[in-house]
Amino acid sequence: MSLDLQLAGKRVLVTGGTRGVGGAVVGLLSGFNARIAATARSRPDRPIDGVHYIATDLATAEGARQAVEAALRHLGGVDILINVVGGSSAPAGGFAALDDHEWATALDLNLMSAVRLDRALLPLMLAQGSGVILHVTSIQRTLPLPDATIAYAAAKAALSTYSKALSKEVTPKGVRVARVSPGWIETEAAVALVERVATHAGTDYEGGKQLIMRELGGIPLGRPARPGEVADLIAFLVSPRAASISGTEYTIDGGTVPTV
Rank of each mutant, 00 (worst) to 15 (best):
D100G: 06
V238R: 00
E186M: 15
T203C: 15
L216M: 14
H52G: 01
T105P: 00
A96I: 12
Y53C: 06
P220F: 13
T203Y: 05
R226L: 15
A90S: 12
D45T: 13
D99K: 11
R196N: 14
D118T: 07
L109P: 03
D232L: 09
D204N: 15
D253Y: 03
V180Y: 00
L134P: 07
A243Q: 08
A55V: 13
A198I: 09
V260F: 15
R116W: 04
G77E: 08
G9E: 15
W103F: 07
P240H: 13
N110S: 11
Q6C: 10
R43F: 14
V21I: 15
E102M: 08
I82V: 15
A38D: 02
S246F: 01
E62W: 05
I219W: 05
F32M: 14
G9C: 10
G131I: 00
S138C: 10
L121I: 05
A155C: 12
A190C: 07
V78K: 07
G17V: 11
A104N: 12
I219S: 06
P224R: 07
A242D: 03
A67D: 02
Q66W: 10
A59N: 02
E229M: 08
G94M: 10
A106F: 00
L117I: 02
A158H: 06
E229N: 09
I245R: 01
G131K: 00
V191N: 03
T39M: 09
R223E: 10
A70D: 09
L143A: 13
R176E: 01
H52D: 06
D147N: 08
T142M: 12
R43C: 06
L117P: 01
R65M: 09
S181D: 10
L107P: 01
R119A: 14
T203A: 09
I80P: 02
R241Q: 11
T149H: 12
K10I: 07
R35P: 00
A37G: 01
P220E: 09
Y162V: 07
G23E: 01
L7I: 05
A37V: 03
T137H: 06
R223T: 10
Y152E: 04
V26K: 00
E169F: 05
R141I: 05
R11D: 07
M125H: 07
Q128I: 10
V132C: 08
A120V: 08
A155R: 04
H135D: 15
G27T: 01
L216E: 11
A243T: 07
A157Q: 09
V51Y: 03
D79A: 06
G16M: 03
G93S: 04
S181K: 04
D108P: 00
S130D: 05
I245Y: 02
S160K: 08
L5K: 06
A24T: 03
S2R: 05
H101I: 13
A243G: 12
A165Q: 13
R179G: 00
I82Q: 04
E206L: 12
A92P: 13
R119M: 07
G207K: 04
T251N: 12
A243I: 05
G31N: 03
I234G: 02
A201E: 13
R141N: 09
T248D: 11
G228E: 14
A24N: 03
M125E: 11
G218S: 07
V170A: 01
